[in-house]
Simulated assay, not measured.
Amino acid sequence: MAENNKDMTLKEIQFLIKHIEKGSLKDIEDIRSEEEKKENSRRLVLKLIEEFGELAENIRKNLRYNGENIKGTIEEELFDIFYYIIAIANDYNIDLEEIFHIKDKINKEKYERSFSLEEARKEYEKNTK
């Protein structure tokens, strides 16, 4: 892991990607037309699909990051997929952290999981100290 990195929250990652996509850290008004917004959504989804294809190829070839060059690795493609999923969520003003909590409650019941998100968080904190 790179030096001086601290864990980021999902909200921080969404903020970062939102501003990367805008090209500025300033909160600038979105003045795109509805057609431009639709076209951007299409672009993001197509990029996501492209990255899934690249991930599949890299998994087939078992191309892993060795600490030197991340280009063309499973790790790079997973990052790219994560990026585009978050960019799509941002495009639709979806708070992924909020949705994660909502969907987790549904899935806990649906799959009869024996622990809650909060219990998992406590266990994670206990094991990472």
Rank of each mutant, 00 (worst) to 15 (best):
R32N: 10
S24K: 02
L48W: 06
N127G: 13
R64M: 06
L63Y: 11
D7L: 15
N5T: 14
G67Q: 02
T9I: 02
N93L: 04
N62Q: 06
A2H: 10
R32P: 05
D7C: 11
K6E: 11
A120E: 15
R64C: 01
S116F: 00
L96H: 02
I86Q: 03
I88G: 02
I31G: 05
E125I: 08
K26P: 04
E29S: 12
D27A: 07
N4Y: 12
K103A: 10
E29T: 12
R32M: 08
N5P: 01
F82K: 04
E29Q: 15
N62Y: 04
I59G: 05
I74A: 03
S33Q: 05
L44T: 03
T9P: 00
E119G: 01
Y84M: 12
D7P: 13
I17S: 01
K22C: 03
L25T: 14
T9E: 03
A56H: 08
I86A: 05
S24H: 00
N4R: 11
I74M: 04
L78Q: 10
F79M: 12
A87M: 02
T128K: 12
E109A: 10
T128F: 06
F15Q: 14
E50V: 05
E118F: 07
K11M: 06
L46V: 09
I20H: 09
K71P: 00
E98R: 14
Q14T: 06
M1S: 13
M8H: 12
I70C: 02
E112H: 13
